[in-house]
Write a protein that binds this DNA or RNA. Structure first.
Length: 570
RNA sequence: GGACACGUGGCCCAGCUGGAUAAGGCGGUGGCCUCCUAAGCCACAGAUCGCGGGUUCGAAUCCUGCCGUGUCCGCCA
């Protein structure tokens, strides 16, 4: 409703000045009305009461008499309410354009260790991150989606060691087929190769694993010192796995612009020069064995205050490389956003504080809580997981069953396309619609729900609009005058808040705000569809058609923004 | 033990930079397809906003204590 605000504020400002209100704090108080039937924007006058020594009800009444413009004003119980006039609203809604953002944004998300297939928990990162990328693009920002590849350190080391030392037969024996792979995914490298990783982890947890531990330690050590041949061996190990993982993401509509390897910052020397710089900081300290740390307690960090960035043997730690990585990232964008699990909160805090210490900026971080299963925490090792590949298959199959029942007229090809789109969209939407800081429990019935607050609900409204356009068979006329019934006004009002919601979602890194808005928009369209027919007795109502077409455009763009596939028929 | 989150109808969830009668969905009950796709629409029932204090004209929202859940507290990544 910022479009209404632009015409309300000037008039309101002079009226407030006249009665003696100082400052412009009221601009923050002027907000979208909660009581929709009272108005579109409301100004609670309680805050002025004290300053002016007057009754808020009287203040509102007086203001109502002195404010005027192309909107309706009323006063009730200390609130001054502004309501947009329907035809004014229609005219302005028709002119809504996606905001011209001009920021250069780098969003790092997913960055999962390339050692096994995505499960729903790990995928929350990718889905949230990609949605943020899409929303920024929709907003007009120049966005780069980046995957930071963990190509060194223990996890990849274990994988590389296993691939080098274990045969398929040995792996099968070690795992005893307790969690054999779904035949459907045999040949998909993330599912195949994770068995080597699991087998190695299994061996490591047993007695007599000292030799193995030593071997892996050597590899890890070499990688952390930038040993070319070991890094190449690591890459050979993880690359096929990563490709398998990216295949899954691609099915979800998630792609990356750039991949940056962690080893880059060791190899190019930026990590060692960073460590030299850290050494000169006043909060720097050295432990007995020669390890280096920063005492972040001196800067207000609570809890554990020593932040180690360099081992006794002189090698760097993950966090150290992360700092070097951030300094590099800052050289190529205006805004930096990271998507991280809540388990990284302390680490991110330490990295952020160190960046400040170095005179750098701190990135925005969107933390998300973990997805649990009804049986408890998701764990690949305990077999308590839902793989994204399986979820997508299940969602598609479920969608196909629904489509077949509803649309007997469609061919198998058409059903296939629709059910894939519905399945993928539903899975994504089920995750983006909830606030990231809410720990949520994955339930099949929610993920596979195609009614109510779901992607298919939004998709369905869009196909209705498409169906109308198909029937009319031509573009709409730029008509902004016509009969405005309540359902029409409601839709116009909903459309009017499209720019506000997009702006909020992007600037606050809260994709769920826009996802929930899409539900609101679709709901408003459904009521409009019921009450405002475009085609009546073969005649086209130009005004209704113009509004329907604008709604269709906003639905389509918005759906792309939240990762819902805008089908024209379903 | 310490740090950081979260706790809203039977279930899920929005609102949390303080403002009107706490917004939706699922499930429940009852209606709507001679009318642009019923994956839809309409109505009804259902809420001590975890518990106790405090600040305020006003608290789901801010502060504080407690309870419950989650995460972290490695010279791992």
């Amino acid at each position: 409703m910022d479009i209404l605000r632009t015409i309300v504020e000037p008039s309101l400002e002079s009226a407030l000045t006249d009665i003696g209100v100082k400052g412009d704090f009221w601009k923050k108080v002027l907000d979208v009305s909660r009581e929709k039937n009272q108005g579109d924007l409301s100004l609670p006058c309680f805050a002025f009461a004290k300053q002016l020594g007057r009754n808020p009800v009287d203040i509102a009444t007086d203001l109502a008499a002195s404010v005027s413009g192309e909107f309706d004003v009323s006063a009730t119980g200390g609130y001054l309410n502004f309501k947009a006039r329907s035809n004014w609203l229609a005219k302005n809604v028709m002119e809504i354009e996606t905001s011209p953002g001009n920021r250069n944004v780098l969003i790092e998300h997913t960055s999962a260790n390339p050692n096994g297939p995505f499960h729903v928990g790990r995928a929350r990162n990718a889905i949230l991150g990609d949605t943020l990328v899409r929303l920024n693009r929709l907003f007009g920002n120049d966005v780069r989606a980046e995957y930071y590849v963990d190509d060194m350190g223990k996890q990849v080391g274990v994988l590389a060691w296993a691939l080098q030392n274990l045969s398929k037969k040995e792996v099968d024996e070690i795992l005893d087929d307790e969690d054999s792979i779904n035949p459907k995914w045999s040949g998909k490298k993330d599912h195949e190769t994770v068995r080597w990783y699991q087998a190695a982890q299994n061996l490591r947890s047993k007695d007599g694993a000292e030799e193995i531990e030593k071997d892996i330690g050597k590899l890890v050590h070499a990688s952390e010192h930038g040993d070319d041949s070991v890094l190449a061996q690591f890459e050979d190990a993880y690359k096929p796995v990563l490709d398998g993982m990216l295949e899954t993401l691609s099915r979800l509509g998630i792609e990356f612009d750039t991949f940056t390897k962690e080893s880059k910052f060791v190899v190019d020397g930026s990590v060692s020069s960073l460590m030299e710089r850290l050494e000169s900081l006043e909060i720097h300290g050295v432990a007995d064995n020669g390890a280096h740390y920063l005492d972040l307690g001196q800067r207000g960090l609570k809890g554990k205050t020593d932040f180690f960035y360099r081992r006794g043997d002189g090698s760097s730690l993950y966090a150290t490389r992360d700092i070097a990585y951030h300094m590099w990232k800052w050289t190529q964008c205006d805004d930096l956003v990271n998507i991280l699990g809540e388990d990284h909160k302390l680490q991110a805090k330490q990295v952020g504080m160190t960046l400040i210490e170095l005179g750098e900026k701190v990135p925005d971080v969107m933390f998300y809580a973990f997805i649990k299963l009804p049986e408890g925490k998701m764990s690949t090792r305990k077999g308590n997981v839902v793989f994204m590949d399986d979820l997508l298959e299940e969602a598609k199959a479920h969608a196909a069953a629904v489509v077949k029942e509803l649309r007997s007229d469609l061919s198998d090809d058409e059903i296939n396309i629709i059910s894939e789109a519905v399945g993928v969209s539903a899975v994504r939407f089920n995750i983006v619609k909830v606030s990231p800081d809410k720990g949520f429990t994955f339930r099949w019935e929610d993920a596979l729900s195609f009614e109510g607050e779901s992607a298919p609900f939004v998709m369905y409204s869009h196909t209705r609009a498409c169906s109308i356009a198909r029937k009319v068979g031509r573009d709409s006329q730029p008509t902004t005058q016509g009969d405005v019934v309540p359902a029409m006004h409601e839709l116009l009002r909903s459309m009017a808040s499209y720019p506000d919601k997009l702006h909020t979602a992007v600037s606050e890194n809260k994709p769920h705000i826009f996802a929930l808005y899409m539900l609101e928009l679709a709901t408003a369209y459904n009521s409009f569809y019921r009450d405002c027919h475009v085609i009546v007795n073969g005649e086209v109502d130009e005004f209704n058609y113009a509004v329907s077409e604008k709604a269709r455009e906003l639905l389509r763009k918005g759906m792309e923004g939240v990762g819902i596939i805008p089908l024209e028929s379903m």
